[in-house]
């Protein structure tokens, strides 16, 4: 894999490192924030343990506003915020806040969907035993839905990798950037497809790990 006589392998490995850095950071920050936001959506909805119409309404509308924004527009729109947060407007660091915010909102819906599927009977049982809302969240809601949540986070990781490619397109580096700069723009299909293959392998590994963990948690 060469371009103008020089090997691109070192470039590829550093691009992979950048992608992983972005994806893992976005998954860690966005995953945690999204988990909390998703739980907040679930517990404030009608009939739930902390049912609160105004709070649910605001959160729900907020998520609905942010989520449909195409990421390529979102990342440019939040650039001033990124700059004040990280001091950088280009590169991996600059991409992470935008990725994390988008991941937060995407995660919140996935979390909410998985929690809604939880049998309300077990929550009622915990209430009947005198457990308060925070305890119910920590000891019933999250542990009982952990298997599907892990699968949800795995799904999300794939989505985040996709987003990092978009971030790459506007200068964040990573595999997407690598494929565009060295492959697409120089009409070098080998480079493009090598980058794609690396992404596929990475996603496969993530999916295997997610499935494995979910199976462990679900004991089946």
């Amino acid at each position: 894999m060469n371009s103008n006589g020089t090997s691109l392998w070192p470039e590829l490995w550093s691009a992979l490192g950048e992608t992983l850095q972005m994806a893992v950071a976005a998954l860690a920050i966005g995953g945690l924030a999204g988990l909390l936001l998703g739980i907040a959506l679930y517990v404030t909805r009608k009939g739930s343990i902390l049912a609160n119409r105004p709070v649910f309404f605001v959160l729900n509308v907020l998520v609905n506003i942010v989520r449909p924004i195409p990421f390529i527009i979102f990342i440019t729109a939040v650039r001033p915020l990124t700059q004040s947060l990280t001091g950088a407007s280009y590169g991996v660091e600059a991409a992470i806040p935008a990725l994390a915010i988008m991941a937060t909102f995407a995660t919140s819906r996935i979390v909410e969907q998985n929690l809604v599927a939880l049998d309300p009977g077990v929550i009622e049982a915990a209430r009947a035993m005198g457990a308060g809302p925070l305890r119910i969240i920590a000891t019933v809601i999250v542990p009982e839905t952990l298997g599907p949540l892990i699968l949800g986070f795995t799904f999300l990781f794939v989505g985040i990798v996709d987003m990092t490619a978009v971030a790459g397109a506007i200068g964040a580096g990573g595999l997407g950037d690598f494929a565009i700069v060295y492959g697409y723009q120089r009409f070098n299909d080998v480079v493009t497809w090598t980058a794609v293959a690396v992404i596929v392998v990475m996603v496969q590994l993530a999916q295997f790990l997610g499935n494995f963990l979910a199976r462990r948690v679900l004991r089946r």
């Binding site: 049998d119 009977g121 077990v122 009622e124 049982a125 019933v140 542990p143 009982e144 952990l146 948690v217």
Partner: peptide, 8 residues
Amino acid sequence: QFNLLRSR
């Protein structure tokens, strides 16, 4: 429906 915690 018993309402036991399946994760425990």
